[in-house]
Design a protein around this nucleic acid. Sequence first.
DNA 1: TCTGGGGTCCTAGGACCC
DNA 2: TCTGGGGTCCTAGGACCC
Length: 424
Amino acid sequence: MIALVDCNNFYASCERVFQPKLENKPIVVLSNNDGCVIARSNEAKALGIKMGAPAFKMQSIFDRYAVHVFSSNFALYGDLSNRVMNILTESVPAIEIYSIDEAFLDLEGVMKPRQFSIDLRSKVKQWTGIPVSVGIAPTKTLAKVANHVAKKYKKEGVFVMKYSKTINEVLKHIPVDELWGVGRQYAKFLMERGFHTAHDLAHGSESWIKRNMTVNGLRMVKELKGISCYAIECDTARKKNICTSRSFGIEAKELHELKEAIAAYANTCAMKLRKEKSLAHSICVFVRTNPFKESAKQYNASQKAMLTVPTNDGMEITKQALAVLERLYKKGFNYKKAGVIVGDIVPDYSRQLSFFHQQDILRRQRVMHSLDYINTTMGRDKVRLAIQGFDRKWRLKQEKLSPCYTTRFTDMLEVNIDYLKSVT
DNA sequence: TCTGGGGTCCTAGGACCC
DNA sequence: TCTGGGGTCCTAGGACCC
């Protein structure tokens, strides 16, 4: 059996951990630039606030119902995620950390899955403050379904789906669009052809499914029938692409502003590569204007450069990225977003050296190593390239940022001992 | 005024090889 | 009249996930 552990309304719950007075109050967390709603507490969902809704369109609802609004605080969410995942990892022999707020657990050898999950859930809640739901079933796709049921209908937050009788009953009540692997397009396609529930799909023709939804659709249907097609993958695969991109708080017009941004993103990509012990063979840069501003002149461009020697050297990647940017840049546009994607990634032990570069590479590796050391121990961007800029006019809008309670000494929560004594 | 930031996989079609 | 059979690699586009 496989368990899917999923944190409830994760980002909203993270904010609530350090502000317990927000219990039972509507909370939303916004995307970068305070753009869209990307997390909602149950109370916010009940107000009809939709996932992905632009914040400015929701402002009147926020005001009317005193919704607590937060900018994204990924330092906080990442740290709390690690704490949750550490607890889960200790509890089972095999785990796949699927996303920042989800993990698949291998329950092989667990005698009483339901009780085990109830205990695990209360441990996570007590140790981290994060509420989770647990769905248990024979395949990943079914565990997703079970988790959905647990979250929505089970007070204890746990639901086990083992026997085909139970599974079939449940699938009759799951709309196709809630399945893992059915997005908007497939949902529309399937509904138009009379497939309304997961049960309908599980009993459809497999060859028809494969023809119309590729082999992925077929795997999903097999998983609904209890035939496992997706194993629990414990070791994280090396990334094939790494992207760093941002929308700007204020639109950028000038080349030198874009250069600062691209240099910063290029260095972040290089840092991510080093963290993964990977090297990139190609660098792609893209810039674009604001597609929502229909009255404005639009420009949307990208270009890829191949490197002769794969690298994770921030200076090298920056140099190449800036060269691409110079070719892309056109004066007279208001740029809203830009990014860098490094690709054609290989492991760092398989570097094919060029005849002429070897000495330089070894020296530069030591520079990067020192840079990483300083920036991880003393704070992000403590040492950076001058081209990354100092005023950073293009930076993010984050007006409702909560403190980094668990990752920054100056943001640590202060507790009034006298008050605590008086209430205990 | 104001609309995120990451990723993956699959397929079809075109270009090429012998 | 009549034009094979076997591949690979690359890219764009489309679907999905969190």
